[in-house]
Design a protein around this nucleic acid. Structure first.
Lengths: 186, 186
DNA sequence: GACTAGGTGTGATTTACATCACTAGTTTCT
DNA sequence: AGAAACTAGTGATGTAAATCACACCTAGTC
């Protein structure tokens, strides 16, 4: 489990045993049941989470009570309501387990401490943020340029395993389409 | 002009005169005419740009030749086709002047050099990337949850000056709506 | 001073998708 | 084992927005 995190980080920057021990010292582990909330709307966001195993959904609930899924977080993903986390303001999103899930938790304080202690980790987080930002821009582009069928096909192509793991209802809410319309696609 | 950049950076991290001189040494200045391209599709992306004055549009052109505007970059914004820039692969986006524009140019090599030389600047770029990523996620949310009228109202509220500076045609292409539909909004 | 290219507004028609309504299978919980 | 909750498919209907088509206006250009 630690090895998985280490391998994940070392895809960006290499670490000595001591450095990795220092990383671990800033994290806590948590086991969560399906349907459990890691972040709830209006509450303060204590942690950013690294998913070891399982699956999370990051959700915005609109005024009409309809759920919109911003992203799924599976193995090796970092997830949080980052706006609320970094600015320490109440969450507008919620983060909930789709399956039983194991995560590492990183508090904002520990995040800053870790960056100060290990510049390498700051570089690691810079890379994560950079490519996270690029990925979000790709999603904007996909919403601007494609219809539902195409978005569904793209998702199938890029994350076939994810599509198999989740219900059509969740998938529809991620694609920004009604459950019924998704059900009618080829 | 340098003062503007310095003020911009110092909103995140404070710099000594020497450190700022070092930042400037990594940048080159460029003056561009309206309609001029800073980045063109299929070409390699040499620079990330800091906009001193003027206005740029970041555009994706789809197979049908229709333009989709991913973002506008005005004073104090950093812009590029960051995917192509960081991975040094051909651009899929283009970056074009909407007005006469003055920019500072930062090559990827100089970006890495600057981060290595001044950890403060790495922290600065980490902040930019973090909040860039949050902003992109907000845009996804807005596309998922709101209709055209609401998106237009939101934009008017957040960037009233931008809306005045650009044509309705460009605005429509940013909001992901046809020119005609935008024209029919209240 | 005519000529071209962008930019804008408005009607008519079409289309992709949402919503409503119903049936039915499958998990989960007690 | 039976109830409750979640999931999935499909028909009928409604609607927001795209598309097509046209008129008009302004700014730059030879």
């Amino acid at each position: 489990m630690q090895q998985q995190l280490r391998a994940h980080i070392e895809r960006s920057v290499s670490l000595t045993d001591g450095e990795f021990a220092s990383v671990l010292a800033h994290l806590t582990e948590k086991q969560c049941k399906k349907r459990e909330f890691l972040i709830q709307e209006d509450q303060t966001v204590e942690y950013a989470y690294f998913v070891v195993s399982g699956l999370l959904k990051l959700v915005y609930t609109d005024d009409a009570g309809k759920q919109h899924i911003l992203s799924f977080a599976m193995e090796d993903w970092w997830e949080s309501d980052f706006r609320a986390y970094y600015t320490q303001t109440p969450a507008t999103l919620s983060l909930q387990c789709v399956e039983d899930t194991v995560v590492f938790c990183l508090s904002l304080e520990h995040y800053h401490a870790l960056c100060a202690r290990l510049p390498k980790m700051e570089r690691f987080f810079l890379q994560k943020a950079t490519f996270g930002s690029i990925a979000a821009q790709q999603r904007v582009l996909s919403l601007l340029t494609t219809n539902v069928q195409q978005r569904y096909d793209q998702l199938l192509q890029h994350y076939p395993r994810l599509v198999q793991r989740i219900s059509k209802t969740l998938l529809a809410s991620y694609l920004g389409v009604s459950r019924e319309t998704l059900s009618r696609l080829s």
